[in-house]
């Protein structure tokens, strides 16, 4: 089966599950590229970091578009950040080669989350 290049685009802070979805495709021998927009990062649990690392091991990559990569995902052993920065134009050009582009979940919220769900 042909390995496909799949970009999963996450614009909303509650949809970082797109990373798990990309991992699901990576284990099916596809290339998964989740992209987190504008710093809408999940909290980096051990589970989440392992998923990000596993996507890299499967020759995919988690990207940050529109925000610096978070410090929490720096891997001291690999001496690099597990998340790579990409700007909007680079992303657009990269996605011209994609087999599938998947805007995941909901668009970005315009309002700030209340304390009840902000963390």
């Amino acid at each position: 089966m042909e390995s496909l290049k799949v970009y999963i685009l996450v614009a909303n802070r509650t949809y970082s599950d797109g990373i798990r979805s990309a991992l699901g495709l990576a284990v099916e021998n596809h290339y998964g590229y989740p992209v987190i927009f504008n710093g809408e990062f999940p909290s980096f649990s051990t589970y989440m970091k392992e998923n990000i690392s596993w996507i890299m091991d499967m020759e995919g990559q988690v990207y940050s578009c529109g925000a610096e990569v978070p410090e929490e995902t720096y891997d001291a052993e690999l001496e690099e950040n597990l998340i790579k920065e990409i700007n909007l134009k680079e992303l657009g050009e990269a996605m011209r080669d994609a087999d599938f582009i998947i805007p995941y979940g909901l668009p970005k919220q315009t309002n700030e989350p209340p304390p009840a769900c902000a963390e």
Partner: peptide, 11 residues
């Protein structure tokens, strides 16, 4: 099912 069903959709 699991996310493998999504893989099957692509295939």
């Amino acid at each position: 099912r699991t996310q493998a069903f999504h893989g099957a959709q692509l295939d």
